[in-house]
């Protein structure tokens, strides 16, 4: 899948080709987010920090799902930032049927909701479970894997901000190596998060052989919406992993949330791809690739790497190697045809 709608490829030079809307193309080719009638499933008055990537990603995804399913969507939310900032009594920012149970059980609760809609004879109602990376890759992983393995009719969306931000920025299994968090402080012999083997949930999801898996970014809206739309065209277990920068946890400016996400994609650390039944079916080629250091230097969580020295050089090179491996694996840098 290309990031750009097909109509726009024909007349390549068009003002704002990659923008949310484009008055020069037909309404269908514009992002859901450009529409006056978009659902605003997550509406104003929520208490997310300034420039919150997760607030953005959640609205993008749920609005796209609503559009794709004729507004017949219910959501189950894991505990976390998204839950806390949207539903503190007495106000909720959600505009759709929404249920929060616990931190680690969103996938299972969604299975239950899906089962209920089935037994009630309302299969047209589509169920989304959503959570942060902590609720997905760590504490909710068991339930998620069970939901996948049973191929329950649920789309699970992980809004990955690479740490436990709600509790004050602690490390999760999605925190990148070297990143500073409150539990991996940038002090001592190994400042920041350690180089483990990583826990690549999209690939773990693929290993379950579920019908659809995709990664997406708040910096690639058309792609994100297309993937959510595609996910809704499948039945069974589906998984979308959306990278959502956290200005607080990443130490980036609130105004740069989308840009930081964009750099993450451009350097190869966050590959955009999709897979069906365990096989990668497409990836989004990187437009104007950059070295990882250009991404790292936009965030204070990597500031300790920028102090020079052989050790830091080595670590940056290791991160670059991760990006290079992604680029190779998903064929992210292509020659023009």
């Amino acid at each position: 899948m290309e990031e750009m709608p097909r109509e726009q490829q024909v007349k390549f030079y068009q003002k704002g080709t990659y923008t949310v809307g484009n008055r020069l193309v037909n309404a269908k080719s514009r992002a859901v987010q450009s529409s006056i009638t978009r659902n605003n499933s997550l509406t104003s008055g929520h208490r997310a920090c300034q420039g919150c990537g997760e607030a953005l990603g959640a609205r993008y995804a749920i609005d796209a799902a609503m559009r794709a399913c004729n507004n017949r969507v219910m959501a189950v939310n894991a505990t976390g930032c998204l839950e806390v900032f949207t539903t503190p009594y007495p106000e909720t920012s959600w505009q759709i049927p929404w249920l929060h149970s616990l931190f680690g059980n969103a996938a299972a609760v969604a299975t239950g909701v899906a089962a209920a809609t089935r037994v009630k004879g309302k299969p047209e109602i589509r169920i989304i479970a959503q959570g942060g990376d902590g609720g997905t890759t760590d504490i909710g992983f068991g339930c998620l894997s069970g939901m996948f393995e049973r191929n329950d009719d649920v789309l699970y969306i992980c809004y990955d901000n690479e740490g436990y931000m709600n509790t004050g920025v602690q490390r999760s299994s999605a925190t990148p190596p070297t990143a500073r968090t409150a539990t991996t402080p940038a002090v001592g012999k190994e400042p920041g998060n350690v180089f483990g083997t990583g826990k690549n949930l999209p690939r773990i999801a693929m290993a379950h052989g579920i019908p659809y898996v995709a990664t997406a970014s708040v910096a690639a809206l058309h792609d994100l919406e297309a993937k959510v739309t595609k996910a809704m065209s499948f039945r069974g277990a589906r998984y979308i992993h959306i990278q959502v920068p956290c200005p607080l946890g990443w130490g980036s400016s609130p105004a740069s949330t989308i840009n930081v996400a964009r750099l993450s994609v451009k350097c190869g650390l966050f590959p955009l791809f999709e897979a069906e039944r365990g096989e990668v079916t497409s990836s989004v080629p990187i437009r104007n690739p950059i070295p990882v250091i250009d991404f790292l230097r936009t965030q204070r969580r990597f500031a300790h790497l920028m102090k020079g020295g052989e050790e830091n050089e080595r670590k940056i090179a290791k991160l670059q190697a991760i990006a290079d491996e992604n680029i190779r694996r998903y064929n992210l840098v292509r020659k023009e045809v």
Partner: peptide
């Protein structure tokens, strides 16, 4: 050629602000 103009400094209604606002 006209569509290559970047409309510097003047809104061309691309909806980016509308889409990028986390607070609607």
């Amino acid at each position: 050629e006209a569509r290559r103009c970047m409309s510097c400094g003047n809104c061309f209604e691309c909806d980016n602000c509308y889409g990028a606002c986390p607070d609607n």
